[in-house]
Design a protein around this nucleic acid. Structure first.
Lengths: 83, 83
DNA sequence: CAGGTTTATGATCCGCAAGGCATATTGACA
DNA sequence: TGTCAATATGCCTTGCGGATCATAAACCTG
């Protein structure tokens, strides 16, 4: 179940899922990333068009990375859905 | 050859490769994305910690999207390299 | 090497994210 | 339902990205 994102909204949702999957509160994550709970909240709810640097701080704190792929590429899950 | 990024520098390089792969100049891409050539240049050279929204504008113009994956995960290509 | 195209960069203005601190809301659970 | 943890949000300041106008520097290519 690969997470993909095309908008800040998508990304906020993905980050929230990832944080919860690691059982972290916004504050714990913020501490790890050297940010503020306020900022984490803003990003997860896409209440603000965050800065790229901030996102990478969060990704690092969550031990995640980004892959850039063509848009229309179907995922294995999509293909399964056809059959 | 999946492109991944952990820093703005990485992402700038990936975007530049993607743009060249589509034979676009910075100006053409900027037009498509509703940005300025100046901005595209800044992002590709990571001369500035861009805004997330701007990145998504570029990705859309290049018909790309982002996938968020665990850091240490090996790619199929990596696995092939072993054998 | 000259001339044109592509990319980098100077300078100013404006808007907004994040820093910083506090409080209000919401959510979960005994 | 009362209570504590977790999340959302109000406010002010400061720093910096992007818009917008340039021009300079680098890169092809004949």
């Amino acid at each position: 179940m690969d997470q993909f994102a095309r908008t800040t909204k998508d990304l906020g949702a993905v980050l929230r899922r990832a944080r919860k999957a690691q059982n972290l509160t916004q504050e714990q994550l913020a501490d790890r990333a050297g940010l503020w709970q306020r900022t984490v909240s803003n990003i997860e709810t896409s209440a603000s068009g965050a800065k790229l640097d901030t996102i990478f701080d969060l990704l690092a704190a969550l031990d995640l990375e980004i892959r850039i792929v063509p848009r229309s590429k179907m995922t294995p899950a999509d293909i399964e859905d056809i059959f």
